[in-house]
């Protein structure tokens, strides 16, 4: 059963990845990316890391994908550009997306019921993750702080200069 779910999720994830780079309509591209992200969340559940799965859905599917969609909407692509590039049989693509959502949800429920039943805390819980992150992996974790700060400084530097010139 687990192997079957793994193969299904992996196939869907790869399909989503392929779709992300091959779709001509950016909105479809982002939706394909969403599919990949959801499948990854499913993989985390299979690996007994429900917390990671939840974070994956909230951060990637919830925040980042929405941000992408906002940017695309703000870019304001003209209708005729989009119309020419719509997919053949566009509705068919709802099937894999729905399948992915279903798999992830079933996984979440199953994992959730295991949790509540009070078995031994699996490695992927928040406690276990926090302990690992702030003891063994504290150095790489702090480095991510430097990474984010550097990216932020860079982003500010690039956009602020544009404003001055414009």
């Amino acid at each position: 059963m687990e192997n079957l779910v793994f193969i299904l999720l992996s196939l869907l994830a790869v399909l989503g990845g392929l779709g992300t780079v091959s779709m001509r309509n950016p909105v479809h591209s982002v939706l394909c990316l969403l599919l990949t992200m959801l499948c990854l969340a499913g993989h985390y559940i299979l690996l007994q890391a429900p917390f990671m799965a939840a974070v994956q859905i909230i951060v990637y599917a919830g925040a980042i994908i929405i941000l992408f969609l906002f940017v695309i909407v703000l870019l304001n692509l003209r209708d005729d550009v989009l119309k020419r590039r719509t997919l053949p049989m566009g509705r068919l693509y709802y099937i894999p997306a729905g399948l992915a959502v279903m798999l992830v949800l079933t996984g979440l429920f199953r994992a959730g019921s295991n949790w509540i039943s009070g078995g031994p805390a699996p490695e992927g819980t928040i406690e276990a993750l926090g302990m690992e992150l702030f003891t063994k992996w504290v150095y790489p974790f702090e480095l991510t702080g430097v990474l984010l700060l550097a990216a932020m400084v860079g982003a500010v530097a690039m956009t602020r200069r544009d404003k001055e010139e414009g």
């Binding site: 991510t144 990474l147 990216a151 400084v153 860079g154 530097a157």
Partner: peptide, 16 residues
Amino acid sequence: MGIEVLSISLYCMAAL
């Protein structure tokens, strides 16, 4: 992490 920190900083520096 080391490679990413140095790379991201350098990408930004190249665009300064």
